[in-house]
Design a protein around this nucleic acid. Sequence first.
DNA 1: CGATCAAGCTGAAACGTTACAGGACGACAG
DNA 2: CTGTCGTCCTGTAACGTTTCAGCTTGATCG
Lengths: 341, 341
Amino acid sequence: MDEREHAIDRAAAGGKPRPTLKTIAYMTGLGVTTVSRALNDAPDIGQATKERVRLVARQIGYRPNRAGVRLRTGKTNVISLIMSVETEVLGLTAHLVYGISEHLAGSPYHLIVTPYGAQSDPLDPVRYIVETGSADGVIFSRIEPQDARVRYLHQQGFPFATHGRTDMGIEHPYFDFDNARYAEIAVERLAARGRRRLALLGPPAHLTYSRHMTAGFQQAVERLDLDDVPIHAVTTDSGHEAIQQEIARLMASRRRPDGIVCGSASAAISPIGAAEEMGCVIGRDLDVAVKESFSLMKKFRRDIEVVHEDFRRAGTSLADAVVRTIGGAPAHELQTLDVPA
Amino acid sequence: MDEREHAIDRAAAGGKPRPTLKTIAYMTGLGVTTVSRALNDAPDIGQATKERVRLVARQIGYRPNRAGVRLRTGKTNVISLIMSVETEVLGLTAHLVYGISEHLAGSPYHLIVTPYGAQSDPLDPVRYIVETGSADGVIFSRIEPQDARVRYLHQQGFPFATHGRTDMGIEHPYFDFDNARYAEIAVERLAARGRRRLALLGPPAHLTYSRHMTAGFQQAVERLDLDDVPIHAVTTDSGHEAIQQEIARLMASRRRPDGIVCGSASAAISPIGAAEEMGCVIGRDLDVAVKESFSLMKKFRRDIEVVHEDFRRAGTSLADAVVRTIGGAPAHELQTLDVPA
DNA sequence: CGATCAAGCTGAAACGTTACAGGACGACAG
DNA sequence: CTGTCGTCCTGTAACGTTTCAGCTTGATCG
């Protein structure tokens, strides 16, 4: 009776009464517990009852109240993407977000985005999430070989997946693009165009994948008996002007490269601009290889060698990995290396 | 006593006991209600008590349990960004996300991202959020003059802010870039370079800002007594090939433009590529004006006329607007038009 | 026939919070 | 001295969910 009046009240008020377990219990004549267990497919509920409950639930558009579940069970049904606000990687992050939410759609999980600034401690947002229990799992990028976040989360037993690998003897879920292979391919392609003196504009040295890319680059350069023209002063994270200056300096020097391998699309713009400024023609005086996720460069200069890195796929894979981790899957099954063709 | 044992249990177990109101109540010797009210600065709690409670809370790192609050009050402390996964706008969305979360940091709000596909109904995610009550407010883009989402949310009395304006007699919070003014500036700049025959590569006609941009363009073209070379077949949302073809056709035609105004940076790549392919030199045979948010084009071709649109600022403004709306501020105070210089 | 068991269902309690109604106590007016 | 008022505090209930222990009922077994 109590429920009935209540329901009628709300319906009369115009605001929808948002059905709860109690509503279904009242409609089916069952207890709240039974309804809950029926919807959760518990083994001690009769098949007929389950079907009846589910039918009613579907009919009235029942959705479990997230706050109720979360309060009772501690399960938030939230995955947090910890996003660096480095401008250079912002465009890529969007694709990651897309991939993640694509995978999460249809699951009970929501995606929340937690940013952290360039100057602040990357550990802060991670700690916040663990301490406040505001998510069931975490995804993050810009991984270092000795990563404090990985260490912390591993030690806390908190589910996570990284976009990039570590090198610290900890087995954990990750998705990584094979940047060593990318660099090899890039070198090979430039070599096939007859280029002999190659420079690598790589990512910042503290990130794990910097090592991979450098290793692949050097290995291929050596194998094909080419020259390695070192770029030390700048990375893909450097500002436009810095990169331009360095490239200009390089192109004017005695050790002028005839091919550049770029660690990212956005960072490729600067060297190309610098080179063209000096009268170089891409495809004639200089060839450029880039790794890019949204085909941008290829539209601009069709002579550029492009290797595709799929950030959307990274997103779906990472989402999958973290959800499976929450489900208890072992880490070693959740490690993906995306090898470019 | 009960509490005491409990607390000791948890502490001994090593897993942190995550303090609650009960913990503070126990430590201060006050009632749970008093603690709650003290932390919420209720008027019927003594000043001394408030300070004592707050001190203890700070010391032990108390954070209100979101699920508890949400269950009790219905307040989710969540803002949802409804994000179109159109690839063309993905890069921009990232900046929006950045701006929003920057504003939300330090507030109790979390940002959740709800995607919707190109083919699915834009109303779906909005309805989902309202029906499940999974956020306190909503932000979305790609606004149409008669926007179903705006109508629905307004009618539901659900707080929202739009990135773009409508034209349906409904007063609501928005942030919009003044695209009319942008187009005017672009035309003026091209005219100052001596260009007389201008084409506009604008956004899809169904979006509100398409009208703004077109109006500004036409007004300026008329005022400066220039020629309007119409582009009908493609928009900034069209694929690279389609735009290239259309531009190629145009450049080969009798009515060949000597200036192009582009509605977005990503869409500017295609016409420039097409024109250069045909032997045109930007800055000599053709001038291009673009609106862009991350300075990309300018790096590539310094001869391009660039007007900056700040998506990050849009994000902070929208977040502010929606939070204020939740707080009860009237819509007309929360309407911002960002006029380019 | 009584005991045991399984199947199917249930109410009470708890998660952490806030709204509500009310209590204790001192001060102050009549 | 009694009554009223204001200040400061408090217990209970409720939000929607799941866990726990336990209840019926009918069947099976010795």
